[in-house]
Every structure is written in C-alpha cells, then in structure tokens.
Computed example of a mutant assay.
Amino acid sequence: MASTSSITGSQGSGRASSSDMDESTFLKRNRTIHFLRIALSFLAFAIAIAVIACEAPPLQHYKDTSQWAPAGLALWPLNFDLRPTIAAIACGSIITMMNLVYIVTALMPSPHSRIKPLNIYSSVLAFAGFVTALVTVLFTIYRPSSNHPAGFNTNETLHSWTCKWKTGTDGTSIPRHFERDCMNTRAGFALMCVLIGMEMLMGIVAAAGTWFQRDVSRRREQQFQVEKLEIASKHAYHQ
C-alpha cells in the first residue's frame, strides 16, 4: 500500500509540475501578446489620427473657397465629388475611437483576469478596423453611385483635381494650397492602405491570443478531470 501510495503521489507530483510549466508558458505568451496588441493599437491609433490630419486641411480649404463660386471665383469643377474625403475622415475617426477604447481598457488595472475579454475585444477591433479601412479604400477608388452633370464623363475628387493643377501649366499659376492639398490627400490614401495591413496584423495577434487561451483552457479541463478521477479512485480504494 505504501508503494502504491508513493507511486500515485509521484505521478500526481509530476502532473502538477507539468501543469505549472504549462501555466507559466501560457502567462509568458499572453504577456507578450498583450504588449504586441497594445503596440499595434497605438500604431493604428497614430496612423488613424494622421489620416484625419492629412484629409482635414484639404476639406477645410474646399469649404473656405467653394463659397467664392457665386462671385465668379470658382476653383472647383461642377463634376466634383467630396465623398472620398469625407469617407477618409470618418474612417480615421472610427478607427481612432476603437483603438483608444482598447488602449484604455487594456492599460486599466483590474483585480480580475481579463484575458478572455481582451482577446474577444481585440478580435472584434481588428475585424471592424479592417472592414472599415478596406471599404473606405475601395469606396475612394470606385466611388459607387457617383453622379456627374451632363457633359461630364467622370467626377473629380479633392485628390484628382488638386493634383491636376499642382504642377501648373504654361502661363497659369498654381491655385493657392493646391500642391499641399494634393500631397495631403495622397498621403491620406496611402495611410489608409497601411491601416489595412495594421488591422490584419492585429487580427493575427488576436487570433494567436485566442488560440493560446482556448488551448490552456482545454488543458485545465483535462487536468481537472484527471484529478477528479484520482480522488474518486482513492475514495473507492479506501472504502
């Protein structure tokens, strides 16, 4: 009986040691993933702010100068589509707010474990951010439901119109701020494309965190079932 007890205790000790190693490995991986997600969220937040900062000045320039049209000082064509600029600013604002909420939530101290909630939120954040950025880029390129006046085949946007004028023509000066607006709108579009990649990276990291969390939960459940079986076996043996 002593020998059997010794063997059982040795096996139990070995399983406990293995379980402790699994938990330690999981906590280290989760800590790394946690910091990666925060870093990616900070980057996405900064890039989204940059998108707004790039697109807002051209929009304000348009609003300030479009009112001159009735006085015969029109700078903008009749076939003008402002929606891509508005969509870019809306995209930047949405991604900024989502990442700000995640950063605050992730950095806020809590007495309880938030591994699963943060995994869920980071996954939702990555998916929503990816869809928002992708839809904005596709909308900017294709501009669905775009209408133009009779006599025009296409519409002009802040980007296309200002970039047409930024180099100037013979005997024609460049309208004020058009070169700046061209560069800003071009940078804003490029940053939105970068956001797509950033959200994909966030999704990969979030998926890794979720997989590790489910794997350790499965191992815990298996360990719990083994311990229950051992207790039941010991109880039956003593009876």
Rank of each mutant, 00 (worst) to 15 (best):
M1T: 03
S3K: 15
S5Y: 08
S5N: 12
T8F: 08
G9C: 11
S10H: 06
Q11D: 08
S13W: 01
R15L: 15
S17W: 03
S18D: 08
S19D: 08
M21Y: 05
F26R: 09
N30F: 02
N30I: 14
R37C: 07
I38E: 03
S41C: 07
F42R: 15
L43E: 05
F45Q: 14
F45C: 08
A46K: 15
I47S: 07
V51M: 04
I52P: 06
C54S: 11
E55T: 08
L59V: 12
L59Q: 11
D64P: 07
Q67G: 15
A71K: 15
L78W: 06
L82Q: 01
R83D: 03
P84C: 12
T85K: 03
A88R: 05
A90P: 05
A90Q: 02
C91A: 01
L100V: 07
V101F: 00
T105C: 08
A106V: 05
P109E: 11
H112S: 04
I115C: 07
I115K: 11
V124K: 15
A126L: 03
F127W: 08
F127Y: 05
F127T: 08
A128S: 04
F130C: 01
A133Y: 00
L134N: 00
F139C: 10
T140P: 05
S146C: 10
H148P: 05
P149V: 11
A150N: 13
T154D: 13
S160E: 13
W161N: 13
C163K: 10
K164S: 14
K164R: 08
W165G: 14
K166N: 09
T167M: 13
G168E: 01
G168L: 00
D170M: 12
D170R: 13
T172F: 00
I174N: 10
P175D: 07
R176P: 02
H177Q: 11
C182W: 00
C182S: 04
M183I: 06
A187E: 04
G188V: 08
F189M: 15
M192F: 03
G197C: 04
M198L: 10
M200C: 12
M200I: 04
A206F: 13
A206V: 14
A208R: 13
A208K: 15
A208W: 09
T210H: 10
W211R: 15
F212V: 15
D215P: 09
V216C: 02
V216H: 01
Q223Y: 08
K228A: 14
L229W: 01
E230L: 07
K234M: 07
